[in-house]
Design a protein around this nucleic acid. Sequence first.
DNA 1: GCAATCGTCAACCGAATGGTTGAATAAGCA
DNA 2: TGCTTATTCAACCATTCGGTTGACGATTGC
Lengths: 116, 116
Amino acid sequence: MTGKLDQVFAALADPTRRAILSMLLEDDMAVTDVAHPFEMSLAAISKHLGVLTSAGLISQEKRGRVKWCKLEPDALRGASVWMQGFGQFEPVNLDAFERFLAVELSGPVMPPEAGE
Amino acid sequence: MTGKLDQVFAALADPTRRAILSMLLEDDMAVTDVAHPFEMSLAAISKHLGVLTSAGLISQEKRGRVKWCKLEPDALRGASVWMQGFGQFEPVNLDAFERFLAVELSGPVMPPEAGE
DNA sequence: GCAATCGTCAACCGAATGGTTGAATAAGCA
DNA sequence: TGCTTATTCAACCATTCGGTTGACGATTGC
């Protein structure tokens, strides 16, 4: 019953995992290549990738014998939006903001700009 | 040596702590009052407040025998900025939110219950 | 077929986390 | 003074976390 926000924030709380996400920002990578810069076992990296995957922050697809890791930045959206609630400091609007999020996150009400 | 980002994200990874931050968004509160809605001991809440404090997300000031907790939203900035690095999701649709507010505030506003 | 590569699994370890209780400290009030 | 309220501290407990190692299944290439 652990909420998605719990998982996302917990996943982001580890510097190794944040580094992995940054690496994937540049390109998709195989597990072995992800592991290469780190001074820890492949199994450890595999676990980190598991955490990132179940948080939805990356996806993994096996092609042949290599498993490719792909960043899924949309998973950060919920967390980002939650934090924005503290950015513009308007106590009055908090409730409205939460309702806005309910609408906003349940589906694209309004495409940002000129289609997707 | 644990980085600030580690602490901030780890602090946000717990639903009780996120709920506390949301409560503090409305107003400063005494520790006892923060604890009141939760079904756990005061000591547990005190620990959570300790975590939030050392992450810099709140500050605590003792006046008389009561200790006041105050939100420090600036502490979220670093985390927010880090996440923006992944942002195909623009920093919330502020425009959309404002449009939403315009509609919302002209109609009936019903208070939902607090918490996440 | 056989060996090397890719990645996970299982068991284990020490440390951190989230909670509990009960005692201790500190401040206000009768 | 002594009682009550506010908060933390200390010890303990179960669970999770981040890491290790070694064995294993799957895939590829010689």
